[in-house]
Design a protein around this nucleic acid. Structure first.
Lengths: 168, 168
DNA sequence: CTTAGATTCGAACGAACGTTCGAATTATCC
DNA sequence: GGATAATTCGAACGTTCGTTCGAATCTAAG
């Protein structure tokens, strides 16, 4: 809170006029962040029918936000279970919706192409690939979000699509 | 430190008889952890020649340690840059060696099979997949390390191997 | 201008944290 | 057993943190 006070120029006590506690402020930030990501994703998916393309949009949307707000995500990624039950539940619900969307996208691809893999592990592996990026992405060395999304999309989609097909 | 005191049964002051500071204790834990992982990996790679198999061993070794010490890795994964320069440098060197080993394994596969992909991004994506596991793996729902390593190995290896081959 | 409400802040409180110190206890060797 | 060293601990230190409070300042309306 003292860091925020210094960074914003507002006094420490002043912050508490707007935010009743540090925890509630973190809750508001998390809620805003994850709501924004989900909203943008839904807008971008609108009207796109191809299963593979929809997954690529998911990856691009995620990486774009994570790289544009790298410092913020460095904090948010690790604040998973710090919110007390009341606050935590609502944020967890948004994250669960986001997770479910990704599961849906993958299940569509799986059904359409008769693929065989564990959706749960594929989705969580994909999240791992994407979320870990804040620990290593360096704008002076690594490509931008669009290029990163293409490379990771290639890696991931080949991984799930080169798999065995279900007998039909 | 007070948590450690309670958990170990030793008094708070007693801990400082053995460890000169909290930072040095964290350094010793990190050094021991990452040294152990690298040593076990090297032992397991001994005598294995097949490139693909060597990568599968890398994944299994990593996941086995991460899942066997899930709570510990939850902490260590996030203590990346907290060690002051003196302590941090040595731990960073071990991690870099570990990273280089993985790069070497992938470059071998790439050369042998004439594949075309960014080793850096492939390695860091693989680390992301594997490291993220501590956030979601639930022993009552998910399979053990060997099965997880097989599934993630399938996903990752198909991803890099299904790629375009270099013109020869 | 006056008043009431909104906004801002310096100063402090109590709790938690990393660490230290001197005394007490225990182990080791002659 | 007594001297020396190793080990353990209660109590406190100074700092940082989240939070509160009352006073001061600013804004808007009559």
């Amino acid at each position: 809170m003292r860091d925020l006070s210094r960074a914003t120029g507002m006094s420490l006590a002043g912050l508490y006029y707007y935010f009743e506690s540090k925890e509630r402020l973190l809750y508001l930030i998390q809620k805003h962040t994850f709501t924004t990501i989900v909203e943008r994703l839904k807008a971008r998916l609108e009207g796109v029918d191809d299963s593979e393309e929809r997954i690529r949009i998911f990856i691009l949307n995620h990486l774009e936000y994570f790289l544009a707000n790298q410092a913020a995500m460095k904090v948010l990624s690790h604040e998973d279970e710090v919110l007390k039950n009341g606050f935590g539940a609502e944020v967890a619900a948004i994250k669960r919706e986001y997770y479910r969307i990704c599961v849906g996208l993958l299940d569509n691809l799986k059904r359409e192409r008769g693929l065989q893999f564990s959706t749960r592990i594929a989705v969580l592996s994909l999240f791992g690939m994407m979320n870990w990026i804040y620990t290593w992405h360096n704008p002076r060395v690594d490509a931008d979000a669009a290029a990163m999304a293409r490379e990771m999309g290639d890696l991931f989609l080949r991984g799930v699509m080169a798999g065995r097909r279900r007998a039909e």
